[in-house]
C-alpha cells in the first residue's frame, strides 16, 4: 500500500496556544480512517493543519509524498488542493450565491461532466436542485452538495469534517456507505465524525485523539469492541 498522507510529530495551535502536541497519522490509498475524540481533542485542527488552513508549528506533513510547505496559508491550501486534497469543512464553505450546478462544476479543475455525474449519482436528491441557489438549500442538502463538490474534483485524499452534522439519520445511513465506495476506488479518506458506531462501521482503521495527542490507534473493528477506550476518550474517565 502507498501512503497518501503521512503525518509525523505534528504540532499546531492558535495564537500561541498549542492545541496539537505531536500527532502521528498514516493513511493509505483506498483506506477509510476515522478520526475520533471528544470536543476540543484537536480533530478539526488536525485536518486544517494537514491542508494548510492552520500553519503548523512543528512536525512534518506529507501529502502524496510531497511535504506540505509551512508558508502563507492561502498559498499552501491552494497548492495542496491542486495536488489532489479535498477538505469538506465543517462550515461547508459553499458558494451560497451560486446555483447547486455551478457549485458542482467548480469542483473539478477542468470541466469534467463525468466526474460531476458520478458525484450526482451518489446524491440523486441534488439532481432536482441544480438550478437552485446553494444558499437556499436546506442544511442537509448543503452538506450533500459540499461532499459532492469535493468528489467531483476526483481527490486522491478526501478529508471530511463532521459529515453527519445536521443530517437526518437516514441520510447518514446512505452517506457513510457512499464514502466507503469512494475509498474503494482508491481515494484515501479521513473521516472526522461524532457518530462513532456509524463511523467505525465503514472505517478500516481509527485514531482516537485526546487533548491534542493520539490516545489510541488501530483496527476499526477492534476499537468498536473496546468501549472502555472510547468512554475514556469521550467522558475523560481515568
Amino acid at each position: 500500500m502507498t501512503a497518501v498522507l503521512e503525518v509525523a510529530g505534528l504540532r499546531a495551535g492558535y495564537s500561541g496556544v498549542e492545541v496539537l502536541h505531536g500527532i502521528d497519522l498514516r493513511v493509505d490509498a483506498g483506506e477509510v480512517v476515522a478520526l475520533l475524540g471528544a470536543n476540543g481533542a484537536g480533530k478539526t485542527t488536525t485536518l486544517h493543519a494537514v491542508c494548510g488552513l492552520v500553519t503548523r508549528t512543528g512536525g512534518d506533513v506529507r501529502v502524496l509524498g510531497a511535504t506540505v510547505p509551512r508558508g502563507r496559508a492561502s498559498a499552501t491550501v491552494w497548492r495542496t488542493a491542486r495536488r489532489g486534497l479535498a477538505l469538506v469543512s465543517e462550515d461547508r464553505a459553499l458558494f451560497s450565491q451560486l446555483t447547486v450546478g455551478e457549485n458542482l462544476t467548480l469542483g473539478p479543475r477542468r470541466r469534467d461532466r463525468r466526474a460531476v455525474e458520478e458525484a450526482l449519482g451518489l446524491f440523486p436528491v441534488l439532481r432536482d436542485l441544480l438550478g437552485r441557489r446553494a444558499g437556499l438549500c436546506s442544511g442537509g442538502e448543503q452538506q450533500m452538495l459540499a461532499i459532492a463538490r469535493a468528489l467531483a474534483g476526483r481527490p486522491r485524499l478526501l478529508l471530511v469534517d463532521e459529515c453527519s452534522l445536521g443530517l437526518a439519520p437516514i441520510v447518514v445511513g446512505q452517506l457513510l456507505p457512499a464514502i466507503r465506495r469512494i475509498a474503494d476506488t482508491g481515494t484515501a479518506v479521513v473521516l472526522v465524525e461524532q457518530h462513532v458506531p456509524a463511523a467505525l462501521a465503514v472505517a478500516d482503521r481509527a485514531y482516537v485523539l485526546s487533548r491534542g495527542a493520539v490516545a489510541y490507534d488501530g483496527d476499526a473493528g477492534t476499537l468498536a469492541a473496546r468501549p472502555d477506550v472510547l468512554e475514556e476518550a469521550y467522558l475523560g474517565r481515568a
Partner: peptide, 20 residues
C-alpha cells in the same frame, strides 16, 4: 464562475484549488 465563487468564499475557492 470562479470569480463569483471566490468573491463569496475565499476559503471555499482555495479548497477547490481555484486561485482567488
Amino acid at each position: 464562475l470562479a470569480t463569483r465563487a471566490a468573491a463569496e468564499s475565499e476559503k471555499g475557492a482555495l479548497l477547490l484549488g481555484l486561485a482567488p
